[in-house]
Design a protein around this nucleic acid. Structure first.
Lengths: 338, 338
DNA sequence: ATGTACAGTCGAACCGGTTCGATAAATTAT
DNA sequence: ATAATTTATCGAACCGGTTCGACTGTACAT
């Protein structure tokens, strides 16, 4: 690979002149610039990104940290982020925490070591646990999906309360009263918000939500499956289920299917977020879907802006909330007449 | 961040001694080593990966290049690769070519510039197009999924001919004779192999495959959808379809559904590779699935071995082919009696 | 006592860029 | 003609490590 010294030698100028010609063209004489540029392109010279990173302290990579790449929500998001990054001439350094805060910490240290220009983070840290590694991070960082108040960081996400509220209202309007929610741990931002949306809407309809009506499926399909089985083994069966995520909804649907409980005739089911090929799943699950492309683009943009203005006096942290869309499927009906 | 010079100053030794104490412990006096190590850990020193990369010419990252992160096949693979890499203390630099060879080239140059230790590549380059960027790549590189003969590179993949053959045989045994395949372009390795498996099995059963019985769905769901619509608008309708991938099968199934053609009563459908939640899709598509976890682990292992032995005289390129598994669904039946 | 081997340590060069302050040459002002 | 300013270029320091060859001092063989 050609180095800047090769170019300098061939152009019969010093390496500093070459560097200047390339990075600050106005500071060298036009003829010199021409000569340097011509030679540089003729031997296919381009500056070594590693050397530039060492000198400047930042690379042309952005880090993306998610809890589970396999979740289609993150998959789609990642795709969009990668497209954006490519346009801006950045590469994506990806990592998956698997929901382990210790690993999240390790990953972020790794990324910092690689001098990523910034990080897009969907943290798996729960309320009450330490978030010092985020707070003390000395580089641009935009949180998405999972928020932490009072962290003073940018955030891009969806209106999770609204998502749950829309779905709950839909069920209430159909006449359901006995509704269960399958959610995540309350330590997780999105599950807390989604639970709130559920509780508030129920309460507004004059129905008090008992704690045992909100079950923790940990955002996992297998847990949702088990819980649903158990739920319908008991005496008091709900007539409808609000699933706090796409995979929870699918796990629940699988359980209903295996129990030969008809959805929507016997039990209605709604969920949050889409899955690929949802049109082929019978019944198609009525859901409040996040606008992933908007979300990804906005998060990328915000990060890029932070990267650009890094070092200057930073703007106030910004929060951007998108509204989910209600997509009707065939998974809801009036409750069976009792 | 603490540098090696800080440690040297505090330990009252030269920086070279610090470096030796850390990297080649036997070459310094035990007491010196102790002192250096103690001070290093007390001020939280760890070597700057960027500086190490600049000096050594290789980083602790591996590049992974796929054609479409959104495809669950790659999603699963990626997850597994990332887990493996993490264990070996490597990070994953990810990119998505979107099926564009020019972009693949650009991405690989980018990765080479980042001094990745090696690359896992599922190339989108087709037979007959230039693969010089792979051939001339001067770093460890393991191809997966998409093979190129005579490239002299390691390869990990599945037995694509077998996959298609198993499915075709299954349909033949049910009594189908008029079978269509929805595949990819023949320039792509996997589609060529899968078509071969189909053709050979049909021929062995005494059925000649006319060219119009293999259609190019470009491994895209929307193309598969359109083609299926068109196919069943015509006079001669096949009684069964072999889809060369998961997304093709889903596109085809959606089309059948929209045409109110019953699967499997009117038309049988089989495909290659799984999709998440396939159990919820009605009918569940009978498919030959690749063992993604094995594939990912093997590819990672091979790459790590190449990385370890890099510089020494390299072992012969290795090829590793896994057998797909036939997973029965409910998407096939005897052909309707004509 | 002299020569040899070796363990332990160090300075300096190097990886490949960027950037600051100095210098020399060309231009303008006095 | 001389001083002040501007323009173009360059050398050297720096980013933070690794590594080679040289140097010193001790232990052993002759």
């Amino acid at each position: 690979m050609a180095t800047i010294r090769d170019v300098a030698r061939m152009a019969e100028v010093s390496i500093s002149t070459v560097s200047l010609a390339l990075n600050d063209p106005d500071r060298v004489k036009p003829e010199t610039r021409e000569k340097v540029l011509k030679i540089a392109s003729s031997i296919g010279y381009s500056a070594d990104p590693i050397a530039q990173t060492l000198k400047s302290g930042r690379s042309k990579m952005i880090g993306v940290v998610v809890t589970d790449i396999n979740n289609p929500f993150f998959g789609n998001l990642l795709h969009e982020i990668e497209q954006q990054a490519y346009k801006d001439n950045y590469m994506v350094l990806l990592s998956d925490t698997g929901g382990d805060p210790a690993r999240e910490l390790a990953i972020m240290n790794h990324m910092a070591g690689q001098r990523v220009a910034g990080i897009l983070l969907s943290t798996c840290v729960q309320e009450g646990q330490s978030i010092e590694h985020i707070r003390q991070l000395k580089m641009p960082c935009v949180l998405f999906d999972q928020q932490f108040d009072s962290l003073g960081r940018d955030f891009v996400g969806s209106d999770n309360e609204l998502a749950a509220a829309m779905l709950t209202r839909h069920l209430l309007e159909l006449g359901h009263r006995d509704i269960c929610m399958l959610g995540g741990a309350t330590g997780i931002f999105t599950s807390r918000m989604r639970a709130n949306g559920f509780i508030d809407t129920m309460r507004a309809a004059g129905i008090e939500v008992r704690p045992d009506m909100i079950l923790d499926a940990e955002y996992r399909a297998d847990r949702a499956y088990d819980i649903t089985l158990k739920l319908f083994a008991g005496q008091r069966r709900p007539t409808a289920i609000v699933a706090a995520s796409n995979v929870i909804a699918l796990g629940a649907l699988q359980a209903l299917k295996d129990l030969a409980i008809d959805c929507p005739e016997d039990v209605s089911l709604v969920g949050i977020d889409d899955v690929p090929w949802s049109g082929l799943i019978v019944p198609k699950i009525t859901s409040a879907v996040q606008q992933i492309d908007l979300l990804a683009r906005k998060a990328s943009q915000m990060l890029m802006r932070r990267i650009a203005e890094y070092g200057k006096d930073a703007a106030q942290p910004e929060t951007c909330i998108f509204s989910p869309k209600l997509v009707m499927g065939g998974s809801t009906a009036k409750p069976p007449s009792s």
